[in-house]
């Protein structure tokens, strides 16, 4: 089953004359349950592609469908609701709120879902335990190592039980050993929860582990690259 479908998507940054074409005629399907790496050189449009996939941005033209729903023209509120319930994000810079504890950070998505705070914290606690941080619930980000912070971020991304987990260079700020643990975590979550994973990476070793690689070149999806391996 296809979770996400892009069809002839164009995207440019900037306005009018100075606009830079970032994505040109990109079409792809993300299927449920796969782990997919997006690779390519800097400025090839990987991150822009990921933000379109995460419904953080809209395509200039072309169709974008999420779980069969046409979302290219959906309202901001609808996109927010889909991001809240169906999509999880992990960023290179973790993006944890420094004044909140690990537990509060992980429970944050529930704030926008109207889940009772107690219940949200309970689910956050069990998810932190799941990523191996059961003893760090009440630590603030500054009291944790990079790897621990990224695990908190991963817990936050999947605590709401999303269909799609998007990661933008999740290991970019980590040493290789920690990076491997985080990638292991992604695969484990993929296996346990069935969450579909799409991650942008520079690391060929990580890309090699993924079942599918999408290579971006100059704003286009490189069709010469091996498409579906899985």
């Amino acid at each position: 089953m296809t979770i996400l479908a892009l069809d002839g998507v164009h995207k440019s940054h900037g306005r009018a004359a100075g606009a830079v074409q970032v994505l040109r005629d990109v079409s792809l399907d993300i299927r449920q349950g796969e782990v997919c790496a997006i690779v390519g050189s800097s400025g090839s449009g990987k991150s822009t592609l990921l933000s379109l996939m995460g419904l953080l941005d809209r395509p200039d033209s072309g169709r974008l469908r999420f779980e069969g729903e046409e979302v290219g023209t959906a309202s901001a509120d609808r996109l927010a609701a889909l991001r809240n319930r169906r999509i999880g994000f992990v960023f290179q810079a973790f993006h944890l709120l420094p004044r909140l504890t690990a537990l509060e950070n992980v429970a944050l998505p529930f704030l926008y879902r109207g889940v009772p705070p107690r219940l949200g914290r309970d689910r956050a606690a069990s998810m932190l335990e799941r990523v191996g941080l059961g003893d760090r619930l009440h630590h603030r980000p500054e009291e944790m190592s990079g790897g621990q912070r990224q695990r908190v971020a991963v817990a936050r991304a999947v605590v709401g039980d999303p269909a799609l987990l998007l990661a933008d260079e999740p290991t970019g700020n980590l040493d290789s050993a920690t990076a491997r643990q985080i990638i292991d975590l992604f695969f484990a979550l993929n296996a346990d929860l069935g969450v579909t994973v799409a991650l942008v990476t520079h690391d060929p070793a990580i890309a090699a582990r993924c079942g599918r690689r999408l290579v971006m070149r100059d704003g286009r999806l490189d069709s010469a690259a091996p498409g579906a391996v899985a």
């Binding site: 995460g54 953080l56 901001a76 509120d77 927010a80 609701a81 991001r83 809240n84 319930r85 994000f89 960023f91 993006h95 709120l97 944050l108 998505p109 704030l111 926008y112 879902r113 936050r156 709401g160």
Partner: peptide
């Protein structure tokens, strides 16, 4: 970040 986590405008 809050918007990414589902905060509406």
């Amino acid at each position: 970040l809050r918007m990414a986590l589902g905060a509406r405008p």
